[in-house]
Amino acid sequence: ETFPLDVLVNTAAEDLPRGVDPSRKENFLSDEDFKAVFGMTRSAFANLPLWKQQNLKKEKGLF
């Protein structure tokens, strides 16, 4: 299941849709939104070091 970017960005855990893991908001973006937000594919993002993934998520309001 995916959700629009505005539902996930800068949203407190208690305000997220049911079933969304607040530590993994990026997994609930569509592939198109994911690429638009991070400028890379999911596989490229997954290959980044964890610290870099976290920094990007913070920068984009998805942490």
Rank of each mutant, 00 (worst) to 15 (best):
K60F: 07
F28H: 13
F34S: 00
V7L: 15
N55D: 14
K60E: 02
E59M: 09
L5A: 06
P22L: 04
K60S: 06
L8S: 05
K60C: 08
P4T: 08
L50K: 10
W51E: 13
P17C: 08
T11H: 09
F3V: 07
S30Y: 02
F3N: 05
A12P: 14
R24M: 11
A44E: 15
A12L: 12
D15R: 11
V9P: 04
M40R: 01
G19P: 05
K52V: 14
P4A: 08
D15L: 15
E26R: 02
P17Y: 02
K25L: 15
E1C: 15
S43P: 09
T11S: 13
N10K: 09
E1T: 13
K25S: 05
L56W: 01
L50V: 12
T2P: 05
K25I: 15
T41W: 02
N47L: 13
S43T: 15
T2C: 10
E32T: 12
K52S: 10
K52T: 12
F34R: 00
N10C: 13
E14T: 09
P49S: 05
E26Q: 06
F45R: 00
G39S: 07
V20S: 05
Q53D: 00
T11V: 14
T2N: 06
A36L: 13
K52D: 13
L62S: 03
L29N: 01
S23C: 15
G39M: 07
L5R: 06
R18M: 13
K25Y: 06
N55C: 15
D6N: 13
E26I: 06
F63Q: 15
G19M: 15
L48C: 02
A13P: 15
S23T: 14
E14L: 07
M40G: 00
W51S: 09
R18A: 15
S23E: 14
A44I: 10
M40D: 00
S43K: 12
F28Q: 03
D31C: 07
W51T: 09
D21M: 05
R24G: 07
Q53S: 01
L8M: 06
L56V: 03
G61V: 01
V9D: 05
R42Y: 05
K57D: 01
R24I: 07
L8D: 03
N10I: 07
A46D: 11
W51A: 09
T2F: 15
A44Q: 14
L5F: 10
K25N: 03
K60M: 06
